[in-house]
Amino acid sequence: MSTHKAGSAYHNNLVGPVMRAGDLAMAVIEAARIDNPGKQVTVDDKRAYIRIHTEQEMILREETIAEELGRPFHINDLEVDLSSFAGQIESQPGAVRFYFQKTV
């Protein structure tokens, strides 16, 4: 990787969770697709963690994740496997939103 490319890697608008591997991560991938229609969901699996990203904004809703998990789920339980995330975060009633204010 050239130095030039390294220095400009912040030129991206990818937001979304970095999940520990497991069934919750799998449910979040599906929920990201359902809750963000028309957006491309990129999944980068690093084995210990999985980056689940979209451009600029991503919403995850607790009922969608519960449906994908097949069991009751509260949005604040996301934290059990939410190791990190890209973008800013906003806690909403029954949902979480990742976003960037600016577009680069």
């Binding site: 991206n12 800013q88 600016k102």
Partner: peptide
């Protein structure tokens, strides 16, 4: 890619 982008945001 992640931290510096958040910082500028």
């Amino acid at each position: 890619a992640q931290f510096e982008r958040a910082l500028t945001d």
